[in-house]
């Protein structure tokens, strides 16, 4: 790759961010997207032992619900593939069992969302269970998928060609994503996704900027967006190193 590599943030947040990457090939951009979705390990409940379940739902259904609750994932290297963390839940009706009622044996692994209803319990119903959380990858099960709705699109450059002919009706011109205007990055939501709002009476044309991609990344709460992206890059690097070693003479 010869082009200068550069990252610029458009929107930043803990769980949701948009950033521009310049100087990467479409293949690399897609590789990064796929790594974020399928290759970053996260914690999730995988096995549940029920001690008592007198609720209206079956054990298996509750185990699925518990598995889908996002858990905060410890720093890289803290856990290896076969490590487990035990979480327990004990709730008696009447009332609702929430993901926040899960008690973890390890402070690093906690439910990321505390308000997820697991099961509504009526009088004399009780849920008591022990669950083992494991660290796995998104390609094995969607519950281990740290990145949610990860995608990218080309950065678009808008250039003004001149004025519209005097008697021509203005037509709306819908563009989505982020546009570049004189080096300035503008999300299209700022002008309601319609170029005729931003350039009234002008003739414009839109083109893709080569090798510049605007990523939209959200996480399920297991970690921050920054963490997800760096870990995805690390897994790509690890795989590239592995390949290099494997093909050496």
């Amino acid at each position: 790759m010869t082009a200068e590599y550069d990252v610029e943030f458009v929107e930043t947040g803990d769980r949701k961010a948009r950033f521009l990457v310049r100087g990467v090939t479409p293949a690399f951009a897609n590789g990064l997207r796929r790594a974020m979705v399928a290759d970053v390990p996260t914690m999730a409940i995988d096995e549940v032992r029920f001690i008592e379940n007198s609720s209206v739902m079956f054990d298996e259904q509750l185990a699925l619900r518990l598995g889908l609750v996002p858990l905060s994932t410890p720093p890289e290297g803290e856990f290896v593939d076969d490590d487990t963390v035990t979480l327990s839940i004990d709730v008696e009706g009447p009332g609702t069992a929430y993901s926040g009622d899960l008690v973890s044996s390890d402070g690093l692994v906690q439910p990321a969302d505390e308000n997820v209803p697991i099961i509504d319990l009526k009088d004399d119903q009780r849920l008591e269970a022990e669950a083992d959380a494991v660290i796995e990858r998104g390609k094995n099960h969607a519950k281990h998928q740290g990145g949610v709705a990860v995608g990218y699109r080309h950065l678009q450059r808008v250039t003004v060609d001149g004025d519209l002919p005097e008697f021509e009706d203005e037509q709306s011109r819908i563009v989505r994503g982020v546009i570049e205007d004189d080096g300035e990055l503008i999300p299209t939501s700022e002008f309601d996704d319609d170029l005729s709002n931003r350039y009234p009476g002008k003739e414009v044309h839109v083109e893709d900027v080569p090798n510049a991609f605007v990523f939209h990344v959200e996480t399920d709460g297991s970690f921050t967006v920054a963490e997800l992206v760096t870990r995805a890059v690390d897994t790509l690097e690890a795989r590239a190193t592995e390949l290099e070693e494997a093909v050496q003479l």
């Binding site: 739902m57 609750v69 308000n115 209803p117 509504d120 709460g221």
Partner: peptide, 20 residues
């Protein structure tokens, strides 16, 4: 029966907003 924990399509956690 109970609200699904995550969105079927994108995997976003939606159940936490159900009660409100």
């Amino acid at each position: 029966m109970m609200v699904p924990v995550r969105c079927f399509t994108c995997g976003n956690v939606v159940a936490e907003h159900w009660e409100e």
